[in-house]
Design a protein around this nucleic acid. Structure first.
Length: 109
DNA sequence: TCTTTGACGTACA
DNA sequence: GTGTACGCCAAAG
């Protein structure tokens, strides 16, 4: 069951996000030229549905630094807990110093 | 096939 | 900061 090509690329980028850093759907979408940030969200959600627990999807947030994907995890608080355990400050489902912790796909080399 | 929905983003009032 | 509108593309019904 070959997964759509962009799914795989989204997974690669997501797995390349350093611990304690975060990135956004729009950044990934733009980097992969998907043309739409929604595709990134779809791919990540599908991956969790497929059981790809090795995917650090909790490090992907929206452009405001909000944990909009928390609902897709086992519990609504799991995403925030994972980030906090990695050293990322999270208050009210929002990443503190979001801009400073932002990671860009072009950094992966 | 058409319509609705969705882990989004930008623009504007 | 809040609310509305539109664009974007894929999956589900």
């Amino acid at each position: 069951m070959a997964l759509p090509p962009y799914y795989q690329q989204v997974y690669e980028v997501t797995q390349s996000i350093p611990e304690g850093r975060v990135t956004t759907y729009g950044l990934i979408a733009d980097y992969l030229s998907l043309g739409s940030a929604r595709m990134v969200g779809w791919a990540l959600k599908q991956s969790l549905r497929l059981g790809e627990t090795a995917l650090p999807a909790h490090r992907v947030v929206n452009s405001k630094g909000e944990l909009s994907g928390r609902a897709a995890f086992a519990t609504p608080t799991l995403m925030a807990e994972l980030l906090v355990s990695e050293g990322v400050e999270v208050v009210d489902n929002r990443v503190q110093d979001f801009q400073a912790r932002l990671w860009m796909p072009s950094e992966m080399y």
